[in-house]
Design a protein around this nucleic acid. Structure first.
Lengths: 121, 121
DNA sequence: GCTTGACTTGGAGTAACTCCAAGGCGCTAG
DNA sequence: CTAGCGCCTTGGAGTTACTCCAAGTCAAGC
């Protein structure tokens, strides 16, 4: 699979995928006869994971760490667990903040809604 | 109130507040005799609103638009309503994505958790 | 054999901060 | 009364995580 298709499927841009490879978030992707990246299904699974970690706000440095631990084999599972656990807490906190902001936003909209009605009367 | 206190209360950094003023997100804050910004309570309310909009991912350009509409007076309330409504949709979508990622994260952690246990046996 | 289109690399540009240097003002301790 | 201290000012450089672009390569189709 070429980079365009990998981008389509993962939801990342081709540029971002190249950037991630250069940054060590991906194992170097093998190239075909004409020098193009050739993505295997297992690469796609990994792309999906780091895409989700990124979308939930994990910094790249931490993702690099996670990728390294992953490449080092099974004995790093406890460290990976801890890293993901910390991330989980962070995501939960972010979601709570977003939910609080949504409440305020809802309130503000209802106030504006009433003012709009009054303007029409 | 000086910038340090305003930063403390709003949760933004003093640098960010200055940056926001320069970018037109805030009306120019009046200065005291020694040239320092002097924040009024109404400024704090506004800071809180834009801080929430920003934390929920509204781009600065849109916040500038919102600030302009706000400065223009009551007749812009319908536009402000529309702008906030669009933002509300975006935030809801983001939260839904985060929640989906949280589920995957939860699953991954439980898999790692089991593998950790097996390693200890 | 020439064009088309997707790919390659390296590098510049962008958003939204974040940090730093150089200098000013006003309070207080000596 | 002045030296030091802390907080403030502005302008500008640095950072993160992309995003876009230019110049060149290669395989396939007409």
């Amino acid at each position: 699979m070429r980079i365009a298709e990998a981008a389509e499927i993962s939801g990342l841009s081709a540029d971002t995928i190249r950037f991630y490879e250069k940054s060590g978030l991906l194992e170097p992707i093998p190239r075909d006869a004409s020098g193009h990246r050739d993505f295997a299904p297992s690469d796609m699974g990994w792309l999906d994971i780091i895409s989700k970690l990124r979308r939930t706000g994990m910094p790249m440095k931490e993702m690099q760490q996670f990728a390294e631990l992953n490449a080092m084999g099974k004995h790093t599972i406890p460290q990976r667990y801890d890293l993901l656990k910390r991330h989980q807490m962070r995501v939960a906190a972010r979601r709570a903040d977003i939910e609080a902001c949504e409440k305020i936003l809802e309130h503000k909209l209802s106030v504006y809604g009433k003012m709009k009605e009054e303007m029409n009367v």
